[in-house]
């Protein structure tokens, strides 16, 4: 709720900021792409999205020399573009692939910052495990995306939800942007991320200062595992009740081998 007066107070700055228009354009483009209109509308949506990305890029500060800036822009474009494509793609399989592309971009951003472990772990955990599982489900469930839950239109809720969400994002970005502008830009990544032994240090840190959290997460995963097994066993036990009754069911073991030859 604190963001509302801030938003009103900075309305003047808001209207003149390219950031604001970039966000508005981006929201419009997403809306056009998501609403499932004709190809022309989707084309306009794509164009607006590109323009909004350019405007957003212009408002960001320069983080280093031109080559690293270029690398950053490319990676950021891959990440945001992949994310946008992931939520607007028509086919669920393409959604999964764009999600993976977006994650690869994120991993690239981490690597670019010198956080080797975070970058590679992102790929292993997300792109590797989750998306493969995701693909599994998609392919086994509905290759064409015609499941009943896909056909339900959520557009009644979409517009108000999107408006609220967009307002919150704009307010948050504007309030944090001033703080970001006033502080010194980060020229070098933190020492712990770039040291030769940063994985050992990371591990030591996790198990020295966050031991309880780690154990809680471990227990949670364990419980989930046990739950999954319990569900499987339950489903297996209940099957005979649901199966049709067989009239040809053998009622006697006479004639079966094992006894007299």
């Amino acid at each position: 709720m604190t963001c509302v007066p801030l938003l009103l107070g900075q309305m003047d700055q808001l209207v003149r900021s390219p950031l604001c228009w970039g966000i508005v354009l981006g929201a419009t483009s997403l809306w056009l792409l998501l609403s499932g209109g004709s190809e022309t509308l989707r084309g306009i949506g794509k164009l607006l999205g590109a323009i909004s990305l350019l405007m957003l890029t212009a408002t960001l500060m320069i983080v280093g020399d031109w080559s690293s800036q270029l690398v950053f822009w490319v990676l950021a474009l891959i990440t945001t573009g992949g994310a946008a494509a992931a939520i607007t793609a028509r086919s669920p399989v393409y959604t999964a692939i764009w999600f993976a592309v977006s994650l690869l971009g994120t991993a690239g951003l981490f690597l670019f910052q010198g956080a080797q472990f975070l970058g590679v772990a992102t790929v292993v955990v997300y792109a590797g495990a989750i998306v493969v599982t995701f693909l599994f489900v998609l392919m086994l469930a509905q290759p064409e995306g015609h499941a009943p839950y896909d056909r339900i239109s959520w557009s009644t809720f979409a517009v108000p939800t999107a408006l609220v969400g967009a307002a919150a994002v704009i307010a948050l970005v504007l309030t944090s942007l001033d703080g970001l502008r006033s502080s010194e830009p980060l020229t070098s990544p933190p020492q712990i991320a770039t040291s030769q032994q940063h994985m050992a240090e990371l591990g030591g840190h996790l198990f020295a200062y966050h031991l309880v959290s780690i154990e809680v997460i471990g227990t949670l995963l364990m419980v989930a595992l046990v739950g999954a097994i319990a569900i499987v066993l339950h489903g297996r036990k209940s099957r005979p009740e649901t199966a049709p009754d067989h009239p040809s069911r053998p009622t006697t073991d006479a004639g079966l081998p094992g006894g007299t030859p």
Binding site: V124, A127, Q196
Partner: peptide
């Protein structure tokens, strides 16, 4: 040289290789 995430990197790429297989198949 000196990539101290060496083995995790190998794991990450082997999980990306699954994409090639699954995309090709689909």
């Amino acid at each position: 040289p000196g990539a101290n995430v060496g083995m995790i990197y190998v794991f990450a790429l082997s999980s990306i290789a699954v994409y090639g297989v699954i995309l090709g198949g689909w």
